[in-house]
Computed example of a mutant assay.
Amino acid sequence: MTELHFWTEIFQNKELKRDVRRRRKTPQFMMELYEALADSNQNMLEGNIVRSFEAQSSGSYHFFNLTSFRLEEHVTKAEFRWFHHKKPFMGRHHFYKVELYEVLDTGPELPRGNVMGSRLLPVYTKGWEVFNITRMVTKWIFNNGANNSILVVAALPSSNGFGSSIQMDRHSVETNAYLVIYSDDERKHYQHPPFHTGHTINISHSFLKPMEGLVQSTLRRRRSLRTLSSTCHRTNLYVDFAKIGWSGWIISPRGYNAYSCTGSCLFPLDRSLRATNHATVRSIMNVLKLPQEAGKPCCVPDALHPISILYFDEEENVVLKHYKDMVASSCGCH
């Protein structure tokens, strides 16, 4: 799906997504990641997309519905986030061990499979534990997202190691577990022509000589027209997501200044107009009417910046995406 098709599909389905935000809460760690990106104004992600999948949990088993993950995306990192609470008094024990298993079957016996990670956790603390499970999730994606769940097993130390299991937490803190997948859709974006480099176009002296008078008369005419038509410049263009019906699925921001380019590109084009060599030649051809259909250069964005958007996808998962080419940061004559 191209970027254009993505935004078109979003626009067509906006009514279906209007009330999503009222049904699903945004994980705090996703909000913090979004705010860090917004503050830095640059992409710090491993890729350009972060998807958070809330676990469908039953006791210690955590299943994830990955049907909304797009197969054309490349997984760069995957994390299992599990929230652990303070444990009740456990005598002399200060630590307990947590192990993660990939569930390979759903038979009558304890369906432990591959061990994905383990660590010691202090009894008297609480917080998120993050396990890197990139290899396993990549395998799931290749199998169309199929997984039997992740099993979390906690045990207290004993004389024979860690053998006695302890009761898992059933507290509610948003949810007890998430799968977070970092990916890159590897879209190739059109690269705008370079800014004015200072290099001049080689035009013969015989051509320049008769142009001198034309340049001088054009400069005088431009001064008289300046009050009627301003030269190429950037103006404000605020996009309010609520007004276009997207506030129900976009979590943050509520809107942003995309900016717009307006004004004329009158001959001769000086350095301040950031004109390309192509635009300079085109302006000369236009003023000489060679050929008749040669049009004037246009005032357009010549540099675009990205923004990050936090939103709900069609499965109500919270997604953070770094979108390129969303803000016109400067304008020029092209």
Results as ranks from 00 to 15, higher is better:
H93K: 09
A242W: 03
E109T: 14
R254V: 03
S264L: 13
G113M: 04
K289H: 09
L179Q: 05
G107K: 07
M90W: 07
M31P: 00
L214N: 10
I251C: 07
S206R: 12
S159W: 05
L100R: 04
S217D: 11
L228F: 11
T67D: 08
H199A: 12
D39I: 06
G295H: 12
N202W: 12
K126W: 06
C265L: 06
S40C: 00
A258P: 01
M44G: 01
C331H: 00
R21W: 14
W128Q: 03
T200D: 08
G113T: 07
V281Y: 01
H305E: 15
T106H: 13
D240I: 09
V319I: 03
T200W: 15
S217N: 15
V239N: 09
K243L: 12
P108E: 12
G117Q: 08
S68H: 05
I284D: 01
D325P: 02
R254E: 08
H5M: 12
Y101Q: 01
W82C: 01
T197W: 11
K87I: 02
F207A: 04
K209I: 05
E293Y: 13
K126I: 04
T2M: 12
R254I: 03
N202H: 09
I251H: 06
H334W: 09
G163N: 15
I250V: 10
E129G: 08
R254Q: 09
A154P: 00
S247C: 04
N114I: 13
D302R: 14
I10S: 10
K209P: 02
T134E: 10
Y96S: 06
T280M: 11
G255P: 00
F142G: 12
A328F: 06
F195M: 14
K296D: 14
K209R: 13
E54R: 15
L120H: 10
V327E: 02
L156E: 15
V137I: 13
L100D: 08
S283Q: 02
V130R: 14
F89A: 04
R92E: 00
I49K: 11
W140I: 12
T200L: 09
A146W: 13
R18I: 03
Q216F: 05
H233A: 08
R222W: 15
Y178T: 02
N148A: 08
G117P: 07
L266V: 11
F142H: 13
K14M: 05
D19Q: 05
S165I: 12
Y101V: 02
Y96V: 01
T227D: 10
F53E: 00
E32G: 06
H74K: 14
F207D: 12
H62A: 01
N114Y: 09
M31Q: 07
Q42N: 07
T2E: 11
L225Y: 07
A146S: 10
K17C: 15
S272T: 13
T227I: 11
Y61E: 08
L66C: 07
V152F: 10
R70E: 09
Q167T: 09
T262V: 06
H196Y: 14
N143K: 13
H322I: 00
R234V: 07
N236A: 10
V152L: 15
N147S: 06
N277H: 14
D184T: 02
E72F: 11
S158E: 14
F29M: 11
N143F: 12
V300P: 04
E54P: 02
Y96K: 03
T26F: 04
P122N: 08
G263N: 06
D185A: 02
K17F: 13
P291K: 03
T200P: 15
K209L: 11
W128L: 02
E316Q: 13
V50E: 02
D185Y: 02
